[in-house]
């Protein structure tokens, strides 16, 4: 970001996207954490649930 080449990234569009995507991706990672952890914490989980969590993760 030193400003050697201002055309290196398009600051407006890329940064706008990153700002927009920040919270959805955070939510996605939380979802991922839950989907990963649940089958481990509950080993007697029924098969369909296990598949569902696999799909989510």
């Amino acid at each position: 970001m030193g400003g050697r080449d201002p055309r290196r990234v398009s600051p407006t569009r890329l940064q706008r996207w990153e700002r927009t995507a920040e919270w959805p991706l955070t939510a996605a990672s939380l979802l991922f954490l839950a989907a990963c952890a649940w089958p481990i914490l509950d080993p007697d989980l029924a098969r369909p649930w296990r598949t569902a969590f696999d799909v989510v993760a």
Binding site: L14, P24, F32, V55
Partner: peptide, 13 residues
Amino acid sequence: MTWAAFAVDYVVR
């Protein structure tokens, strides 16, 4: 699913 979200983010960026 979450993989898709991260993949989309990467591709868009």
